[in-house]
Design a protein around this nucleic acid. Sequence first.
DNA 1: CTCTTGCGAAACTAAAAGGTTGCGCATATA
DNA 2: TATATGCGCAACCTTTTAGTTTCGCAAGAG
Lengths: 104, 104
Amino acid sequence: MRRDVFQAIADPTRRAIISLIALQAMTPNAIALHFDTSRQAISKHLKILSECELIKAKQEGREIYYELEIKRMKEIDKWLEQFRKIWENKFSQLDDVLKKLKQK
Amino acid sequence: MRRDVFQAIADPTRRAIISLIALQAMTPNAIALHFDTSRQAISKHLKILSECELIKAKQEGREIYYELEIKRMKEIDKWLEQFRKIWENKFSQLDDVLKKLKQK
DNA sequence: CTCTTGCGAAACTAAAAGGTTGCGCATATA
DNA sequence: TATATGCGCAACCTTTTAGTTTCGCAAGAG
């Protein structure tokens, strides 16, 4: 079963969950209230996110709080790095063009 | 059919295609040579990437060159922005801790 | 102890993903 | 003109995904 960060963030619900718990850790029930699906469906998403280590569970009595593991998000950032170089380069080329236009 | 940038980069083959043509525009056949699948399978990936406007086709005779549309990659970067704030913040908090430790 | 609540796990279903083969068409080459 | 090449598209198959319903268990509340 393929299970990586990119596949994890492919689903819009999972992206929303990530954004939601980025602010504060939440229980599955609390998270599910924000969506139009069942608590079990959310639990499945949480399981996938856990397997990718994008989130971490913290048991508190019978409640389980899930919080974001920010470090995994950096993997995406790392992959983007190669393209950031390209678009920054294109911008600097555009800057050059604009500078030359102003000089005329 | 769901079709957005995040779903597009979920597949490892598509990520590899993106990295490949980031350097220079390539034809489907040339791209397929880099992978262990058929030309048609690559064409399917190219179609998905096109629909997400992550790549752009340029016809040249009977050959079609696909090139990266770097601007769409920025959407991912934009989404990451919210988390970048968090991890930079955590780093700065860590910095504070380290500074205080040094002061002792 | 009994009932409620919060949760994960299993079994099932519909839809989507990712691959294959086969086809037709346009362009290049002999 | 005949043949080879580059490509997209459609049909088909298999596996994965995302959801549902049902269940069982552990932790609080009465």
